[in-house]
């Protein structure tokens, strides 16, 4: 006699293993990526309104509350970046002939690119004064 028993999926599945919790953390930290994109738009908007408005905006941003909030945001975004760099080798199976480029090389190359882009960006900021 067949009488299949159906189990429903637990709502708290993501609490049940460290890997699932890590996945949730990765997904949640993506909110900060959107936040910083939005913040950059705000910055550009203030800059477009003139030097005084921009200066006022930047003074506000130097308040401890904002600095702490953005430090938390930076950690979250860095963690998010780290998780995506780690998973990139799964998406990009780069092959040279029959050999697959080792995962470490792909992950490492991304960090090198990350540092180079950041360095160029900060150098330009410096130049702009």
């Amino acid at each position: 006699m067949r009488r299949p028993y159906h189990r429903s999926y637990p709502k708290d599945w993501w609490l049940r293993h460290p890997h699932y919790r890590r996945f949730m953390l990765r997904e949640l930290t993506s909110v900060f990526v959107a936040y910083f994109a939005f913040w950059t738009i705000c910055l550009l908007f203030q800059a477009s309104r003139g030097p005084e408005q921009l200066a006022a905006f930047l003074t506000t941003m130097r308040k401890p509350g904002w600095l702490i909030w953005h430090a938390i945001g930076l950690l979250a975004v860095l963690f998010h970046t780290y998780t995506w760099f780690e998973t990139a080798p799964k998406v990009l199976a780069v092959r040279i002939g029959e050999k697959r480029v080792p995962d470490r090389v792909i992950v490492g190359a991304q960090w090198v690119a990350f540092v180079v882009v950041a360095a160029v960006f900060f150098a330009l900021l410096r130049l702009a004064g």
């Binding site: 293993h17 890997h19 699932y20 996945f23 997904e27 998973t87 799964k90």
Partner: peptide, 9 residues
């Protein structure tokens, strides 16, 4: 797929 990645683990 939302890329939880646990299948591969």
């Amino acid at each position: 797929c939302t890329f939880v990645g646990e299948c591969s683990e």
